[in-house]
Nucleic acid binder design. Sequence first.
DNA 1: TCATTTCCATAGCGATCGATATATAAATCG
DNA 2: CGATTTATATATCGATCGCTATGGAAATGA
Lengths: 224, 224
Amino acid sequence: MEMSATRRGRPRGFDREAALAAATRLFWRQGYAATSIADLCAAMGIASPSLYAAFGSKEALYEEALRHYVAAYAPRIWSGFAAAPTAREAVEALLLDSARVLPSDRSGKEPGGCMVTLAAVAGEGCERLGRIVLESRAEGLNLLRDRLARGQEAGEIAAGVDVEAAARLWLAVQQGLSVQARDGAGPAALEAVARAAMRGWDGLMGAAPGTGTRTEGDAATPAA
Amino acid sequence: MEMSATRRGRPRGFDREAALAAATRLFWRQGYAATSIADLCAAMGIASPSLYAAFGSKEALYEEALRHYVAAYAPRIWSGFAAAPTAREAVEALLLDSARVLPSDRSGKEPGGCMVTLAAVAGEGCERLGRIVLESRAEGLNLLRDRLARGQEAGEIAAGVDVEAAARLWLAVQQGLSVQARDGAGPAALEAVARAAMRGWDGLMGAAPGTGTRTEGDAATPAA
DNA sequence: TCATTTCCATAGCGATCGATATATAAATCG
DNA sequence: CGATTTATATATCGATCGCTATGGAAATGA
């Protein structure tokens, strides 16, 4: 039971949160393998012993940076989704918020696209980091699947719709927005994509899947 | 004017095409920065002087590998698109072919997802390679935009549809398929996504964009 | 055969990689 | 005040990075 209102020894001479944020931006833009400790030290404004004392290793720093990214940026993308009263409005919020958030600000301080979606760390040698990124991505699919299933139970979505496939589709659109944002697409272009996608909602979420019976035009769709 | 039916000197002791294919798979899976010359030499079955004699440098090898990938794999994704008689069938072919081709074969010899879409080389230090990847990605958008515009002129797509936004949307879906394939999604899951996406076609490509006039239910859509 | 040309195997180049040893500086505890 | 504890600054560590020099092997041309 350590109280430790104040810690012993010489206090840290830099802002750990600010340093972590700087490291996050660098990993976000450059990826794991292409970012060296020297790069990180320069961006964080510290020397390597301080980095290792505060974060342990490059791998541990990346893991913490990823969690920092999720905590700091994921709400900008997913909070509207979570708060929406209907599945349709949830997906619409997800895509419109993504279109607004994913492009890089003109300052170029933060890179375009989602760090989780664009992370290629799985193939960059470190197994553990690959698993973490995989799980983070799977979380997006889970959120969509659960929300669509709830909407289906509520009658907003036709009973015959394959919720798993639909969730993967809306996720694919959102992931594509990240790729295009990384390539320089701006908020206006991405918003147009989001609105175009939503225009397909009725045809998508009202019709029956595949070869089966078509539950056409049930009372489900709230119309435009 | 060198005839050179047969070249002078000791002939090359390895198959250049096979070595390039091996390098391509490695860059495809691991990216540029995470792939070392030693890795490449092991995969290609040659020593580094042979690599440099045949390909020049790591950067040049990556560029050639990328072109090799486009030449060898892009047709599997885009040939059905190019051959389709209508814009709708073209997009459908693109998505279904992508669903079939993008997942990694169970052997694991080739990684999942498109090398061009998933390449993060732009942030990995080399400016030139970044530009090449950017252009390769833009080519996909160009193909889609041109095909949709042709379809719109042919009356297959409503006049009010924002072709640019629609092209970006279908591209986004296809890019999302690559991300999900890289994460382990199989052909069945991706095909379900492709079919779900096509179910949204009419709602998407028939309605007018944004705030403008809605040219609802014109004679354009060929119905289901 | 022998000079020429080209390729390959070995070894190693300087630079940078991720990570640390050491010594000093700055804080708390007694 | 020391004694202790923690952080920073400097100077590396061995390993690996991308790349190449060197010399011998294997082909052609004369």
